[in-house]
Amino acid sequence: MRAGAIFLREARLAFAGGGGPAAPAAFFIASLTLVPLAIGQSPATLQAAGPGVICFAALLAVLQGAERLFGEDVVDGTLEAYGLSGLPLSVVAIAKVLGSVLATLWPLPLVGLGGGIAFGLPVEAAGMLALALAAAIPGLAFLVAIAAALSAGARRGGLVIALIAAPLAIPLMVFTASAGRAADIGNAAASANLLLTCAVSLFLTALSPFAISAALKARLE
């Protein structure tokens, strides 16, 4: 079995079982819709809260599909097949996560862009926020995948995933939301925040596969 096959399988599975990109995007839109209803329709409040709320809702949208990522593989024996395939488990992890990210999470920056405009951000700020979200999502997905791999086969795995992933997601939340906020007030720090988002996301993308493969290996023994 080659990495490409795992990648394609994951992408196909996302469409077959989970409605592909529709589910996280719809979840993202739904949670953003609730925000003005909850915090009030004052334009100043919405504009100030916009970047942060959008990042936060994006994290929830990424978390929403996490339990499926490894949980089913552990139960139905697919993981054992991966283990026997001779591929390093870290490569399996990369293929799986990238497959599911590219199949399901690509609309999130676009929804973020629309959400930013709807919350009253200037177009440039909403664009910066969408860019930062696009940079952050691979890192977020890998981070959530660590949590998913660690709690695969656990009771109430979804709850544990959220509890584990939340503190680890802080840097990405901070830098992504700060990029949007700084762009909103015309602060030059926006691009610095964008770069930091990229850096953290790259760091997580590079190192997470090892943690994921360690977690999967423990489940194979």
Binding site: R156, L159, L163, A166
Partner: peptide, 17 residues
């Protein structure tokens, strides 16, 4: 955050039989 990290560790340990 430190507090949450401890809670996450405890919760993960408790959740796996």
């Amino acid at each position: 955050i430190q507090f949450l990290l401890f809670l996450g560790y405890i919760a993960l340990r408790a959740a796996i039989e």
